[in-house]
């Protein structure tokens, strides 16, 4: 279970829709670069950031997948994914990157309580 001083970053927006996702991942990386333990929770359309088949989109648009893969180099290896979000988007867990961990929606409030700091993107 999470370390009490860990930062929880919540990702709720899909790639290629807005800057929210990028900013959320950047916040996680900066905290990780400082040695702060970081956990990520993907809710709603945010789960789409973990699709392993995603590409890079239009010219000048940065792909998300390389950044997701890079998280482990910043020692960010807890990537929780809302099971309910997957169900409502009809995405199967096998379509996601390896290190994603499903979390039942009933456990989400508990996850919020366990973290001293929460950033919501």
């Amino acid at each position: 279970m999470p370390t009490p001083d860990a930062l929880l970053v919540i990702i709720r927006h899909a790639p290629h829709s807005s800057n929210w996702l990028r900013e959320g991942l950047d916040a996680a990386l900066v905290a990780g670069a400082f040695g702060q333990p970081v956990h990520l929770l993907f809710m709603g359309q945010g789960v789409m950031a973990l699709l392993k088949e995603q590409g890079s989109g239009g010219p000048g648009q940065k792909a998300t997948l390389p950044t997701i893969d890079m998280l482990e180099m910043y020692d960010i290896d807890k990537l929780w994914v809302s099971e309910g979000a997957l169900q409502s988007l009809q995405i199967s867990a096998d379509s996601l990157v390896e290190n994603a961990t499903l979390i039942a929606d009933q456990q989400i409030p508990g996850l919020f309580q366990q973290h001293a700091k929460i950033l919501n993107f």
């Binding site: 809710m43 359309q45 989400i108 409030p109 309580q113």
Partner: peptide, 15 residues
């Protein structure tokens, strides 16, 4: 909104 739905998923008993 999606934000409202997601918030409702995250709210705990004493929040």
């Amino acid at each position: 909104s999606n934000a409202a739905t997601q918030m409702q998923q995250a709210v705990g008993d004493r929040d």
